Simulated scan of single mutants.
Amino acid sequence: MTEQDTRLQPKLYMLLLGSKAPGRHVEQHDFFFGIAHSLAELVPQIKAFWRNTGTSLHIDGWREVTAVDKYQITVVPKSEANPNATEKLFFINLGGYLLNKLEEQHFVVLTVQDDRGLAIQEAKRSVFFRTNTIKGMKGANAHIDDKYGIDVDDIYKIEEMLSPALKDQYHIQIIPADNLPEDEVHLGYFRLDKLT
């Protein structure tokens, strides 16, 4: 495949969206996954995902998802999906607490695993999971297996997070690969009207 072919290939994007929605006192955040040829092409998908935000909807960070664990991630037409593939790409939002901090801490894990149980085990190995705990505080204890001060707020297969139209059209291809460069993470305030 030539460099031009890879530029024409659709990409999987992971975005951290921000908005000060009507009636809120502080900015709210959510993660969004979409498939497009460019970041600018995602704008209609973003607006459909998080409605009624007015002009406050923006991107606080993004990455093109190409490497997770020791796997290459690409987007292919649904017709090219390998029916025998068992690996799935999971998004896990961990939540935890720190003593005397009036806020819930969060840590996001992307991992390739065969099922949800293995994805949770992988998340539980993270430094965040082991360090954001408060022993003995009612309500700050876990509800994952060991009840230890942290919880899995959300876990999804990435394909579950895509719009129905994208699920019908594309497949996330996961291929074992070594020595992949880490995905570049772009942070800052990105206005949607400046992307187009």
Rank of each mutant, 00 (worst) to 15 (best):
N93W: 07
M14R: 14
E104N: 11
T55Q: 11
G95N: 03
G95W: 00
D183V: 01
N132W: 01
G54E: 07
I92V: 13
D115Y: 00
P164W: 02
T196D: 02
D153E: 12
D5E: 15
R125I: 05
G54Y: 08
F90Y: 13
N93Q: 12
I134D: 02
I120F: 00
A48W: 08
A165L: 06
E27I: 10
Y71F: 15
Y71K: 12
K20N: 11
I150D: 00
G96C: 03
F32H: 15
H29Y: 13
L12C: 07
L8I: 05
T111Q: 02
E159G: 07
D5M: 12
G96L: 01
H58Y: 11
D114R: 09
E27Q: 14
H37G: 15
K167C: 04
D193C: 02
N179S: 10
I150V: 13
D60F: 05
Q121E: 10
K124N: 08
F32A: 11
R7D: 04
D168Q: 14
L195D: 00
Q105R: 07
Y156E: 03
A67S: 14
Q169E: 06
Q28A: 12
D115E: 06
M137Q: 13
N84K: 14
H25K: 12
V152M: 04
K78D: 09
K194D: 06
A177P: 00
G96T: 01
H29E: 10
R125M: 08
P83G: 12
M14V: 07
E160D: 09
W62C: 13
D178K: 15
T111E: 01
M161T: 02
I158K: 00
A40T: 08
N93A: 15
G136F: 06
T2P: 01
D30N: 15
Q113G: 01
V108T: 15
S163Q: 11
A40C: 08
E182V: 06
F107V: 08
F90M: 01
R63Q: 12
E3I: 04
I144H: 04
Q9W: 09
V65Y: 04
V127Q: 05
P10S: 13
K78W: 09
G23P: 00
T53N: 14
F128D: 03
D146E: 13
P22T: 05
R24N: 13
Q173E: 13
T133L: 04
L195T: 00
V75I: 09
L180D: 01
H143P: 01
